[in-house]
């Protein structure tokens, strides 16, 4: 699988897939998509990159250890439930706010952060699995 074409194109494919995965994540509330799917797409992107170019470039590219990313995601998802407790409603109740940033109304909500948390957990955990297996495979 280490063909020149594959190796050359893999970084671009990966970059595209990661961007696409974020798109899928963010549109997930109203259209098909969401954290789980987005996370899986990004994880497959990194897995492909790993197969093509080896694991070390992938580790350098994502900078953080995959499990740190997953841990951060879990923390984010758990914390996304806290504001509702401050507001006096049960844990994880959705809260919405619509601040206007530069004439554009942005819909911010706790489920958004929760979904980002889900995304990061899936990306982190599954990339971690794939990369460690690939390392095993090579070494």
């Amino acid at each position: 699988m280490n063909t020149l074409i594959f190796r050359t194109f893999a970084p671009f494919i990966t970059g595209l897939m990661v961007v696409f995965s974020i798109f899928i994540l963010l549109r997930g509330h109203n259209e098909p998509g969401g954290g789980f799917i987005g996370g899986l797409i990004a994880a497959s992107a990194f897995a492909i990159y790993g197969i093509a170019n080896g694991v070390p470039p992938v580790r350098r590219a994502i900078y953080f250890h995959p499990h740190s990313i997953a841990g951060f995601g879990l923390l984010l998802a758990a914390l996304a439930g806290i504001p509702s407790m401050v507001a006096g409603v049960p844990y994880l109740t959705a809260l919405w706010t619509y601040p206007v940033i530069g004439n554009v109304e942005v819909a911010l909500s706790t489920p958004l952060f929760f979904d980002i948390g889900v995304y990061l957990v899936v990306v982190g955990a599954i990339t971690g699995i794939a990369l460690s297996l690939e390392e095993r495979h090579r070494g």
């Binding site: 789980f36 955990a125 599954i126 699995i129």
Partner: peptide
């Protein structure tokens, strides 16, 4: 099912390893 798919995948990977 959506969450079940992801979880069964993690589980499968764990059993595989």
């Amino acid at each position: 099912i959506l969450t079940a798919i992801v979880i069964s995948f993690s589980f499968f990977a764990f059993l595989l390893v």
